[in-house]
Nucleic acid binder design. Sequence first.
RNA 1: GGUGGAGUCGCCUAGUGGCCGAGGGCGCACGCCUCGAAAGCGUGUGAUGGGGCAACCUAUCCGUGGGUUCAAAUCCCACCUCCACCGCCA
Length: 420
Amino acid sequence: MIDLRTLREDPDRLRASQRARGEDDSVVETLLDLDERRRGALSRFETLRAEQKSVGKSVSRASGDEKAALLGRAKDLAAQVRSAEAEAEKLGAELEDLLYTVPNVVEEGTPPGGEDDYVVIEEVGEKPAFDFAPKDHLELGELLGAIDIERGAKVSGSRFFFLKGAGARLQLGLLNMAMQQAIEAGFVPMIPPVLVKPESMKGTGFLGAHASEVYHLAEDDLFLVGTSEVPMAAYHADEILDASALPYRYAGWSSCFRREAGSYGKDTRGIIRVHQFDKVEMFSYCRPEDAREEHRRLLDWERQMLAKAELPYRIIDTAAGDLGTSAARKFDCEAWVPTQGRYREVTSTSNCTDFQARRLAVRFRDPGGGTRPVATLNGTLATTRWIVAILENHQRADGSVVVPVALRPYVGLDVLEPVK
RNA sequence: GGUGGAGUCGCCUAGUGGCCGAGGGCGCACGCCUCGAAAGCGUGUGAUGGGGCAACCUAUCCGUGGGUUCAAAUCCCACCUCCACCGCCA
């Protein structure tokens, strides 16, 4: 959630941000107006309440006719206080509801526009040149006995699959390698719950515009997380962190669940877009003034992983309109997928500044006095989707796949061979 | 799922309708004492919103949400969480 005080001081910043995202900037007027009315109502309530308290006190000290008169006055005040409080609360709730619909202010330098207006920052590595017709990841996966889509569909429906044999080993190895890298970099490894309460989901910004992407268990009013970012952000909710110990860095391993409600017909083949996958995610809490730098560090750790997987990739600076609700800036790494002739997202790192922290009340004590919301950032280290890029880029004519050197100790195989 | 107990300031705790505008202890910070420290003594000690250049003022917060009352940490109702035991179960 954006900061109201900053908004009062500099409303143009939010206006510009809204326009860059392609969203309505008139919300700024509505917010400012509502805020002013709320503050007026609040001060009327406070004055009445203070009077009620002092009259109430004198009731207990008075007696006889005087007491009766005071009691009448007190009853009168009680009614007024009640209605003044209701008014202030009503305006406060209205303001909050509106505030929850406003996405984060984008970081300076973010390209404006929509999904196609990203800027390519860098291309890394060599695309493989095959002297045979490359197979796509599903064909390879079936040849290797690594991916079973048909049975996934039989058991759970479309966009579900089994990883087995070499496929299961490849995923476990990849995610273990990611975990190991994170631990060596000082991250605290974490295996979080994947079912969370509504406030955790709302606090991380996933129940706004993209609520239809999220699985909800109505019976228990719990949500299945689409990323471990959710439990890791909510982990320190309502806490005041030790400023001298920042940044706090966690690496979460979890299954992730996505309804893919708006993507009928998109990426229907294989395991590129699925309802359930696994992911190792980095998550940082830091001082807002350090967030930009931390964001670049997360990107560097992603690059290290891609290098170990020996994948050709490019980095894009996502345009404002394609940022999530909480993100102020987002860099995606996209790996080359030979049979599609294009790059596909395999990591994504977002700087959410103090947007999530304000919603979740994660603060640190400022040595200058008082508390301030921290900044939160997240970034992917590895996911199931990486299997697609690894299989396709490292395939050989006979359908076998060479395991990247760094990954071999984790997978326990140098080459994945076709099964009969 | 059932029964019982508990949830007060960072931690422990006092508190059965107005003297709670929440007391005490621990911890922490600062000061005195000291060559220095410990002990001792003294002072201070939360969050959130609003007002003010400021020091400061003000309202709210005793698990959460309702209710009773002029007045609620305190009484009533519902819920949540934790602990114990019972039942069921991977």
